[in-house]
């Protein structure tokens, strides 16, 4: 189904509402984060904390100590940007069963500019012990990831986006925490992509097929704990690697994948598709992906480059 990952999250909350342990918190942006419907249908289990993310995160931690499963939701930039210490102490270190849900991640947010474009959140959520990090690729996967997180016991960060994405998965798909998923089986080069960059990679595939190339595309929706086995297998099988993420090049998926390769003595040509350690500017998602090197065209180019490096 087509739709934004935030829409999948909102829909999943409604379906999961019969579980009395589920509680939802927001910090004054519930229309945009898609928690509003849950709030109007289940006002007793919805806490709109106002514009105070630090308080929201710790309130969620308190609720979790009693067996509730709180989903604390806001825009990724504020949810994580304002609460690193709260997440570290009250969630990660305390190991409370809180799910942080950050919508509007990455430069895909577009026109609101860099203060609204969260590009460092994977870096610091990945760096926190106990915290797992998940970024679904489309509506269906977002829905399933939300359901999986309600069952999973422990703190987690669910990274979601604003723009509508063309559906990749249908209801037959089975999301599993910690498992990557091959969305295109090809040869020569493997692309490990996350979030919106999975559909961007699929768009690149059209272009590449015309040129006689057919890279394998793997959706890495769990950034941590990352699917080491799949990354090792696929990297060895293809001998050339691309990583693709709407996040700064430091600390995100690219680093997570390269770490797996380095730890396993897999030395293959690789390229990172990511924001190049810079702040973007205002503009449409499409314009920004073009300007900052995240578009399908950039991915296609990188595939050809690593294929050549392979020799």
């Amino acid at each position: 189904m087509d739709g934004a990952t935030r829409d999948g999250y909102g829909a999943a909350l409604l379906e999961l509402a019969e579980n009395p342990r589920l509680v939802v918190l927001d910090s004054g942006v519930s229309d945009s984060t898609r928690t509003k419907k849950f709030g109007s249908q289940h006002p007793d289990r919805f806490f709109n904390m106002g514009i105070s993310e630090a308080d929201m995160v710790c309130t969620a931690a308190g609720l979790a100590t009693t067996g509730k499963v709180p989903f604390a939701t806001s825009f990724a930039c504020f949810l994580l940007g304002r609460t690193m210490d709260q997440v570290l102490v009250s969630l990660a270190y305390s190991n409370t069963n809180v799910k942080l849900v950050g919508t509007h991640s990455g430069i895909a947010v577009g026109e609101d500019g860099p203060t609204a474009q969260m590009i460092v959140d994977m870096a610091y959520t990945r760096a926190m012990p106990n915290l797992i990090v998940i970024q679904p690729a489309d509506y269906e996967e977002a829905k399933q990831a939300t359901k999986a997180l309600l069952e999973y016991n422990g703190p987690a960060y669910l990274r979601l986006g604003r723009p509508k994405i063309k559906g990749i998965y249908n209801e037959d798909y089975q999301f599993q925490i910690g498992k990557g998923n091959v969305v295109n089986k090809g040869s020569d080069v493997v692309i490990f992509a996350t979030g919106s960059m999975v559909s961007e990679s699929l768009a690149a595939l059209e272009e590449l097929k015309e040129k006689g190339m057919n890279p394998t595309i793997v959706n890495i929706s769990t950034i941590k704990p990352i699917d080491e086995q799949l990354i090792i297998e696929q990297s060895k099988a293809h001998g050339a690697v691309i990583t693709a993420e709407d996040h700064n090049r430091i600390g995100g998926l690219g680093d997570a994948v390269l770490e797996v390769l380095a730890n396993n003595q897999i030395f293959v040509p690789s390229k990172k598709i990511a924001v190049n350690d810079t702040f973007a500017q205002t503009g449409s998602s499409k314009q920004l992906y073009e300007r900052y090197g995240l578009s399908s065209g950039h991915i296609a180019k990188a595939v050809a480059e690593v294929k050549n490096l392979k020799g």
């Binding site: 995160v57 931690a61 609720l63």
Partner: peptide
């Protein structure tokens, strides 16, 4: 909270009132 009797980790000032509030909200639920 690994220590019996402790509800949550603290040590970075300013967080405990929010945590306590979250627990109090759960009591009502």
């Amino acid at each position: 909270p690994k220590t019996p009797g402790v509800e949550i980790a603290t040590g970075s000032l300013g967080q405990g009132l929010s945590v306590a509030h979250g627990i109090a909200l759960a009591a009502k639920l």
